[in-house]
Amino acid sequence: MRYSSIVQRLVYRYALLTRLAHWFGAIAVAVLISSGLQIFNAAPYLDAADRSTPARRVLSIGSPADGVGQLTLFGHTFTTTGFLGWGSDGVGGETARAFPGWLTIPAYQDLADGRRWHLFFAWVASLAWLAWLVSSAIKGNLAEMVLRPSDLPKLLPMQAYYLRLRREPPPHGTYNPLQKAAYTFVLFVLAPLIVLTGLALSPGIDAIAHPLTVLFGGRQFARLWHFLGMLLFVGFALVHIFQVATQGFFNQMRSMISGWYRLRDHESVGP
């Protein structure tokens, strides 16, 4: 009897295409971040301006002397030796370098190859996103994921549940209100912004679409937004991995690999 009730609560949550898009996207984003840091290393500063303008430098990473690494943020300098500015050269030694070798693809400093990785996996990530979006839209699965005004009052109670200030989460469908907020922001705001700010960096794209580059404040500004978008994505990924690890790791992983998810007591099938 108990066995059958457990079986009944297994639901096929993620279609094959969704799972493929998730894992292709996850690998692509990891590659994009580390190859992006490799590219950043070639000009390790960010200016809030169209053209490079030292007076409007928001962030810079450098090495004022051998063995010393520094991060300067809004004019405040922090010593970051061993990590930022001075660290692993990717081939066994240490060198003056913004992001260290263990964070970049390839590990050694190589702008040309970093660009190859970045531009190739930008297509992988974009196509994974597009394939997921089209298939979800056709199947009508988007509605259960997109944040609606009716979800807004449930956001704080859900956060209270995560903070263990509340015994039960507010009633919700496949995704809880905080999940909806996070997925809606990342998939429909952040991801498109990262793609568009990346395109705005290219002189060839700028030549056929000035308004795009102008919209972000120019090329160096677009580079700043592109970098900030990456940081926000890293923030999302850390929370996402933490949640997967703590909210039933094996159930979560199985569902994104095989599609089958075991509903917990407070969860229901539909929205």
């Binding site: 000009a43 169209d50 053209r51 490079s52 002189p203 580079r223």
Partner: peptide, 12 residues
Amino acid sequence: TRHDCVEGWSAI
């Protein structure tokens, strides 16, 4: 016009 270096800087 703006000169866009592959390294990431630009100058007009």
